Simulated assay, not measured.
Amino acid sequence: MKELAYYDGIIAAPEELMVPFNDRVHFFGDGVYDATVGGNHRIYLLEDHLDRFYSSANALDIRIPMAKKELGELLTELLKQVEGETHFVYWQITRGAAPRNHVYDGQMTGKLWVMIRPSQLRDPDVPISLITAEDTRFLHCNIKTLNLLPSVMASQKADKLGAQETVFHRGEIVTECAHSNISILKDGIFYSHPNDQYILRGISKSHMIEACYRLGIQVLERPFTLEELMAADEILVTSSSNFCLHAKEIDGVPVGGKDPLRLKQIQNEVVEEYLRYTGKKSMFDDIRN
């Protein structure tokens, strides 16, 4: 298959799959999701993503209809059915299908959705542009819910302004981006917002921190300000599908570019982990071939 869609045991092409109208996701965004990339038909950091997926579902009292190991095996088997070498692998669980009512049946079994399509990784050597926006989202950013409208609108604004991401902040404190984590390098030290209720615990960010430790780079997980962001030697943006991007400007003001050697060390370490994990020879071998 070129693209795969799965809903509650049914597999089809995305345009062919039908979803019940009463699935609570339609009315409430009532569910959680996770996503990562696949290389050589192996799902990158699958166990980490499953841990976060089950944690998010448990936080919202959503019943996943299978054990973690079984879900991992299902996702892996579904990925094998899709053509290509690099893929975007997305899955979500909704609370289930029932007539619209804010009160739900606590024994309801969730409905699993999966979407897998060919993808490409961004080149970490190509810098990106950022903008800033006051973070006015709900105060449980640590739960990866389906209620993504604030992030959608922020992403749309960035795109209209020719940027690739929006940096959220609460007052002067930088939190994260619309669909990424953000960290900085300053004077050889890696700074990143701690994993609290204001940000989603980024798996790619966590692995980048581990990469810094392996490289002997000091890590401080503490909030940093907009002023510190603008004065940073390098600004790093990470997500599960873009492991280690870096910024060249924010709100049209040039930033970063002051510690390229240390930045490249971190990027190389993160990319090497991906290649070791998936068995791929290059991030871009499917493009170059």
Rank of each mutant, 00 (worst) to 15 (best):
G29H: 09
N40V: 04
I203E: 01
I266T: 06
F21V: 14
K160N: 14
I62R: 04
S192K: 09
Q81A: 10
E176L: 02
L263T: 07
H169S: 14
Y274S: 05
K205S: 08
R117C: 06
V89Y: 07
G9S: 06
V271F: 08
Q107A: 13
K280F: 03
L121T: 13
S119V: 00
K205M: 13
S240T: 07
E221Q: 07
M153F: 12
Y54T: 00
Y7N: 02
A163V: 09
V37Y: 07
G84P: 09
N58C: 05
E134P: 03
E272M: 11
E221P: 01
R288V: 11
A231L: 12
D125W: 06
K80G: 11
N22K: 04
T175N: 04
Q218E: 15
N22P: 02
G279L: 08
T225W: 03
D285K: 11
I250P: 08
L215R: 04
V237W: 03
Y6N: 11
E165H: 10
I10T: 08
V25P: 01
V167Q: 02
D123V: 10
M230V: 03
M115K: 13
D285C: 09
H193R: 10
E228P: 03
L200D: 03
G9N: 08
Q81C: 07
V167M: 07
L75H: 05
R24T: 00
K69P: 00
E249R: 11
I235K: 00
I235R: 00
N58R: 15
Q120F: 11
T238P: 01
E272Q: 15
L226C: 04
S56V: 02
H207A: 06
E228C: 09
T109S: 13
Y6W: 15
L200T: 09
V167F: 05
R222G: 04
S239W: 02
A12Y: 01
L4P: 01
Y33E: 07
F168V: 03
Y33C: 02
L245M: 08
K2Y: 07
E221H: 01
D125F: 08
G106T: 14
N22V: 07
P127R: 10
Y33I: 06
L185C: 12
P65Y: 09
L139I: 06
V271I: 15
E176I: 07
D285V: 13
S155A: 13
S129Q: 12
G39T: 02
E16I: 02
E85K: 15
E165N: 04
S180E: 13
G252Q: 12
C141P: 02
S129G: 14
I235Q: 00
S241T: 15
Y198L: 14
H87N: 10
N268H: 11
M115A: 14
P14V: 01
S129R: 15
K2N: 12
G256M: 11
I93Y: 13
V89N: 09
Q267S: 08
G202V: 05
K69A: 14
L130V: 12
R262K: 14
D251N: 15
P194T: 04
P124S: 10
L112G: 12
